[in-house]
């Protein structure tokens, strides 16, 4: 018998290779607390797990299971999936919440396949009805809302990064070591890693309240700096169209759209972006959309709350000055 509450929601708190608890963990625990008792799992290299567990408790986990695995930094996905399987056996949760990050998805996939559990991907929220936990999805670029549930057993849910605003109240740390028996599943080997350099003072794209994105209309990597300047004036994150990414103006992690990041900010500013349907799929749920484009027929204007037909190289510098002036 498990001594965990019947409404336990198991949360896999994501920890970076260097031991930092990822921001997504607070949102996952916030979501779990809305529907049950959040029990967190921390999987980290020996020596790094204790600090991570303490942080996870401040995010609101009522209990923290701690798995130290010597191979987390060298073996892809499998150590996380093995620990999650051990934790789920112990806790018997109603649902398992995992970040819809690249690594999170892989762990969710292996865990769900191994335990024959239902998998709900890229959820933007969770709730509870008479029959259990329900995942809420925003699909086809936000054109539809879909709710899904498990036919039987726990629902494994990956949560879109930046989608959940709820945060739980911090809890005193109740940590316990989790014993993990290795599955022996074959894994890819990690032979090295490089951390991306991010502008320290700029918000992260996922979950940002404001986003300024640039497209092919910026014309070059040098001129793309204008997008960053407007973003910094507004305190916004920087995004891009796929054409801007393909042209090498900015790394792929900043791509907004169908095959990039989906954002739902208060303000989305599109500069030199035509508004192809695949781009719109990643931003059309923004509260307010502003577009600057020299082509009056550009499809981005069909969804813009405020559109400016004009040359962005003339309008944007003036806009920066005008905003600075109004801030005073």
């Amino acid at each position: 018998m498990s001594d965990f509450p019947a409404d336990s929601i198991l949360v896999l708190a994501e920890v970076s290779p260097t031991g930092t608890v990822q921001k997504s963990a607070a949102a996952l625990i916030g979501a779990a607390a809305q529907v049950g008792s959040p029990i967190a799992l921390v999987v980290a290299s020996p020596g790094q797990a204790a600090d991570a567990a303490a942080i996870v408790a401040t995010f609101g986990a009522t209990r923290v299971l701690v798995a130290e695995a010597a191979d987390v930094a060298t073996s892809l996905t499998v150590p996380g999936a093995d620990a999650l399987a051990a934790a789920a056996r112990l806790v018997a949760p109603e649902a398992v919440l995992i970040s819809n990050s690249i690594e999170g998805r892989d762990v969710a996939a292996r865990f769900a396949a191994r335990t024959h559990s239902a998998l709900a991907v890229d959820a933007v929220n969770v709730s509870r009805d008479d029959e259990g936990i329900v995942a809420h999805h925003s699909v086809y670029g936000g054109s539809y809302n879909v709710d899904s549930a498990a036919s039987t057993g726990p629902l494994v849910i990956t949560i879109r990064q930046g989608a959940i605003d709820a945060r739980a109240e911090g809890q005193p740390l109740v940590a316990e070591a989790l014993e993990v028996v290795s599955s022996g599943a074959a894994a890819a080997t990690i032979t090295g890693h490089t951390e991306a350099t991010v502008a320290a003072n700029r918000p992260e794209l996922r979950g940002a309240a404001k986003v300024v994105s640039g497209g092919r209309g910026l014309g070059s990597e040098e001129k793309f700096v204008l997008v960053e300047q407007l973003a910094d004036t507004l305190g916004a994150a920087v995004g891009a169209s796929r054409a801007a990414v393909d042209a090498g103006y900015i790394p792929q992690t900043s791509q907004v759209g169908q095959t990039g990041v989906s954002v739902s900010p208060q303000l989305y500013v599109a500069l030199g972006i035509s508004g192809a349907i695949q781009h719109r799929a990643g931003m059309q749920t923004a509260k307010t959309i502003v577009a600057i484009n020299k082509d009056a027929e550009a499809p981005i204007f069909e969804i813009a709350d405020f559109g400016v037909v004009g040359d962005l190289f003339a309008v944007v510098p003036q806009l920066i000055d005008a905003i600075e002036a109004r801030k005073k």
Partner: peptide
């Protein structure tokens, strides 16, 4: 365990708002 859809709804499409042509004061209006 299988994933089952329990509800679907369509979100209303977005409508276009204001569109102005820059005649030197668009930045200020924006």
């Amino acid at each position: 365990g299988r994933s089952i859809v329990v509800a679907v709804s369509e979100r209303p499409a977005r409508a276009a708002g204001v569109k102005i042509i820059d005649e030197g004061d668009a930045a200020s209006q924006l």
